[in-house]
Design a protein around this nucleic acid. Structure first.
Lengths: 321, 321
DNA sequence: TAAAAATACTCCATAGGTATTTTAT
DNA sequence: ATAAAATACCTATGGAGTATTTTTA
């Protein structure tokens, strides 16, 4: 018997419904049913009567429920005491990352860390705008953030940088566009298109990088000038694309949840533009928590699916936001 | 955290020695070290100071030890209560098997069952002699045994039989014997050898089966006549082989622990003789325990390594003891 | 220089997932 | 007809093994 069995059993006993209990435990209903079944087999008694419409505790189940609760409370209590005596200050780890990193192994690393070190208070600071993302560097300096993810920033002696993965840029086309039925789009095909980018003000390097990619393909891009938003949110861009103003060049939305904008995404090639996502932390700042987290990031980003999806990004060009 | 971690931790805390504790928990030292390490990481405190010569509990470790013991006791107590209330009679399973089955998946099945159903009292009745093994059928009749393993016995309406695996027979040769450097030995190579078998009295079917194999290979075997032992124990046979009295035909000793007798074992072929090991239980006797155990046997004997080691045994001939 | 713990891998058992069927109202 | 649990099958995490290195009395 493991605590897992007791935790699951208590959940079912409290919900009196396997599916709901499964939801509460963040696992699937069959997985939970299986573990409860194992517990019953091991004990040699049935804990629930599933005969009727509704699940019901048996007599043995009621006895176990009481004991299981006590066990779980005692375990928590004991762990807390040991931590206090051991002088484990309530350690935390503050991680910043831009919204679009949710689709990358970065998110998996966060989840893994949370599971592996449940007693570390993990703060997730999601940044929604370019400005916020840029501010991460400042927060690292001031020590109000432990590690931040961002497109490759300017060199900074006080900050250590490590490449994590490459974020592929793709073309966003309106439905019915002549290029919309191709598998991939060569940059030079965009020579006569009006391109929709974020304003250069917001991140010169990235802007210049995209322009450089166009030059590489042999043309000078015609960019639709924008004054407005500092928002990453592709939504504005997508709306512009959908209304036929031009072709967008955007980070590939891994969750294809933007069908609503009637926008079609196509990989770019010759060259395939990509932006380097890096992790950044204060030089010399090496708490065990930070190290452990970084380790997880390295594992997942190297083994796991590259966001660049097989494209070989132009590392030299890769600029940062 | 799981109970596993607490169990292992308590063992180390009591032994103050990882290797010994690992032995007590029936696992390897690195495995135990790893789990304790995980516990320390999760709690964020070190539980042992490994600095000095000897392992020592830290303050946090002492606190955890106390709590962990309470938890483990409470778990046991709760499980017992639930079982009592649920009316789970102290169920048992009595399994008989000949000594040589220790080398086969049968042993794994026993171990698996013990681990999976710790609350079932599993009695292992190892039989050391032919007579004892034969008596298993009688015990099944009388209901003093739930399931027995044996070489395929006579038909018996009161007993259900299921094939489990084939036990390969091999030649036992003295060192320096002309055949001792071959990879495998054809039965017909034994035509001019004196063969050492158990006495026919003890199990005519098996004896006759081996003789039939010789006939199949085209010769009438010259068998060294034996009066004595009803013991399976190959020891006597091995001694006879070693002293040059003849060539033994014996069950392959999987644990090559008989080097002490200066005997060399070689596979036999043309035909490759094998004896069918079966499970037997009283017809209609189908307690959940028995069913669960049988299931484990089936899994392990089908998936796991056949004792016959790839030889295709002559099923028709396969006799029983 | 031994004995014990830590490292570095390899493997596989099993927890958990997905898809589907059965059951019960 | 619907909702919930059971069943079947598959995947992959991580617990445990073996081999080796490091450590320390």
């Amino acid at each position: 018997m493991e605590l897992r069995h007791l935790r699951y059993f208590v959940a079912v006993a409290e919900e009196l419904n396997f599916s709901r209990a499964a939801g509460r435990m963040y696992l699937s209903q069959p997985a939970l049913s299986q573990q409860v079944r194992k517990l019953e087999l091991e004990l040699g008694v049935s804990l629930f009567s599933r005969t009727k419409n509704h699940v019901e505790l048996t007599e043995a189940g009621r006895v176990l429920l009481e004991g299981a609760r006590r066990v779980l409370v005692l375990v928590e209590q004991t762990a807390r005491e040991a931590r206090e005596v051991g002088g484990a200050e309530i350690s935390h780890l503050r991680v910043g990352f831009p919204e679009y990193a949710n689709h990358t192994p970065v998110a998996d690393a966060l989840q893994t860390f949370r599971r592996r070190y449940p007693y570390v208070e993990l703060e997730e600071h999601e940044t929604l705008t370019l400005q916020e993302t840029l501010l991460q560097i400042d927060k690292l300096h001031r020590g109000t953030l432990d590690i931040g993810f961002m497109l490759k920033p300017e060199e900074d002696d006080l900050v250590e940088i490590e490449h994590v993965l490459n974020i592929e840029l793709v073309a966003a086309l309106p439905e019915g566009h002549p290029l919309a039925d191709r598998d991939a789009i060569s940059m030079k095909d965009l020579a006569d298109e009006r391109l929709i980018l974020f304003s250069r003000n917001f991140h010169p390097r990235s802007y210049d990088y995209v322009v450089a990619c166009c030059r590489e393909a042999g043309f000078k891009p015609k960019v639709v000038q924008r004054k407005e938003p500092q928002l990453y949110s592709g939504a504005t861009t997508y709306r512009m694309v959908a209304s036929g103003i031009g072709v967008g060049i955007v980070a590939r939305p891994v969750l294809s949840g933007y069908r609503q904008y009637d926008v079609i995404f196509k990989p770019l090639k010759d060259p395939a533009p990509a932006l380097a996502l890096v992790a950044a932390w204060r030089r010399g700042h090496s708490s065990p928590n930070l190290q452990a987290f970084l380790e997880g990031v390295r594992e997942l980003s190297s083994i796991g699916g590259q966001a660049s999806n097989g494209l070989t990004p132009n590392g030299d060009f890769a600029a940062g936001i």
